[in-house]
Design a binder for these strands. Structure first.
Length: 426
DNA sequence: ACTCCACAGGAAAATTGGGGTA
DNA sequence: TACCCCAATTTTCCTGTGGAGT
């Protein structure tokens, strides 16, 4: 009796289950269509996987593996492949392996990375706090626990270029030293080919012992991958060939991005299932793309720190009143007003300059440094995408709930001169 | 050739805030 | 509770810069 009740609960609560039970088209686990799913076969990545396996293989015989650097654009299968390989390896040595995956975009200081590694090694000891301990003690503790665990350790540093960008080569050097002092290897993942040149020599030689390159997928390969993912999950015929081709083409367009292709297909399938239609067409994929891009925008704005949100709002409002002169100085003035209105102590211009660069990295704004000769040198800034949407996403933050719209200053130093400059020209 | 605007962005100092210790 | 350590964040101080004006 109890089982039946639970069964119904699951059907009610889990949308995937609901579809799979009520729909003839779904014949397998829809999780296979998630871009983070790690399949057990990787079409068109056999060479890379074999190379990595060969390098790490020496661990099986008790040896030490070289450090590896994986290159490739996003969605080229680097992360999935390495996790797949380490999973297999862990199986081969019957679990005597610590494989620690770290995304350096999230853990971006040497301190946070080391603490994360320590807390990932399970030797039945308490967690280490994320702040406040002296570095040498972290270091000591890490070595101690690594030795105690008595396993080989593989540290995977994803987006390793972000670490260098934020914390410099030293952060990596510390990690590499630990590797030298213990039974472990580092695997770096980067999508920036020039990354290695920015390192200093001592780090370079240690990290770049072996490298594996992941070239972008072409449209034909992407199509294979999509078909492979659908296989056994969705009934043939439910998805129009044109839809698959389009997903592959859009992914190929975006530097051969398999993640994008798969996500697009999944979103398209999802909405077709929800609308109870009986075929996924190219049109559905186009809709999926719009939705996908909106979600990315919304999500990246939602997770922005409060001051970044205020800066972005300032850019939006400034651009709204005058497209010509969205420059740093004016954005800063308006940011200050917004900040004061919302009851925050405004940050300095120097800091805002960095925040603007961060926003550019996120693709939320685009900047262009221009010189107006006598009238100075500054950045011209534009928001990417619709101002209305961006504004509404920012306003979703409760901190902005009583934002009335600060007065938008138009009288910066530059503006006075700049206006004169144009008056003069005309 | 030289000046000077309005910043960009590097370096170092100062502040912040968790955590430990007495 | 007072006080010291630490890394992270932010400010202060600074030098650098492209090109119109003179």
């Amino acid at each position: 009796m109890g089982y039946i009740a639970i069964y119904y609960l699951m059907i009610m609560d889990n949308p995937f289950l609901k579809y799979s039970k009520n729909n003839d088209y779904v014949i397998g686990d829809l999780k296979k269509l998630s871009s983070s799913y790690i399949p057990d076969t990787f079409p068109h990545r056999e060479n890379q996987i074999n190379s990595i396996a060969k390098i790490l293989g020496s661990i099986i015989n008790g040896g030490i593996a070289s450090n590896i650097l994986l290159y490739g654009k996003s969605g080229s299968g680097k992360t999935s492949s390495i996790i797949h390989v380490t999973n297999m390896l862990s199986e081969a040595v019957s679990g005597k392996l610590n494989s620690i995956y770290i995304n350096c975009q999230i853990y971006d200081s040497q301190y946070s990375i080391l603490v994360y590694i320590i807390n990932s090694i399970n030797v039945g000891e308490p967690q280490i706090p994320a702040l406040g301990l002296p570095m040498d003690r972290i270091y000591f503790e890490l070595i101690r626990r690594l030795k105690k665990s008595n396993k080989y350790t593989i540290i995977i540093l994803d987006e390793i270029d972000k670490l260098i960008q934020k914390s410099g080569s030293d952060a990596l050097y510390v990690n590499l030293k630990i590797v030298a002092d213990s039974n472990s290897s580092i695997i770096g993942i980067t999508n920036e080919a020039s990354f290695i040149n920015r390192l200093d020599a001592r780090v370079q030689s240690r990290l770049n012992q072996e490298s594996v390159i992941f070239p972008p997928y072409n449209a034909i390969e992407l199509k294979d991958i999509l078909n492979f993912r659908i296989d056994g999950v969705i009934k043939r015929g439910f998805i129009d060939d044109s839809a698959i081709n389009l997903c592959a083409a859009l992914g190929a367009q975006e530097h051969g991005d398999a993640r994008k292709s798969i996500d697009l297909l999944r979103i398209a399938i999802d909405s077709v299932l929800r609308e109870q239609k009986n075929k996924v067409t190219a049109d559905d994929v186009f809709h999926a793309r719009d939705k996908f891009e909106m979600n990315i925008l919304k999500e990246s704005i939602k997770t922005l720190p409060i001051h970044s949100k205020m800066v972005l709002l300032s850019v939006s409002l400034t651009q709204e009143t005058d497209t010509e002169l969205t420059v740093t100085g004016e954005i800063y003035e308006n940011y200050k007003n917004i900040s004061l209105e919302l009851g925050f102590q405004p940050l300095t211009m120097r800091r805002i300059s960095d925040l603007l660069n961060d926003l550019e990295d996120l693709g939320l704004i685009s900047t262009n440094t221009r010189s107006l000769g006598r009238y100075g040198r500054t950045k011209f800034i534009k928001v990417m995408g619709s101002i209305e949407n961006i504004k509404s996403y920012i306003m979703e933050d409760s901190e902005f709930s009583n934002f009335q719209g600060s007065k938008i200053v138009k009288q910066t130093k530059l503006r006075t001169n700049f206006d004169e400059y144009f008056d003069y020209k005309e």
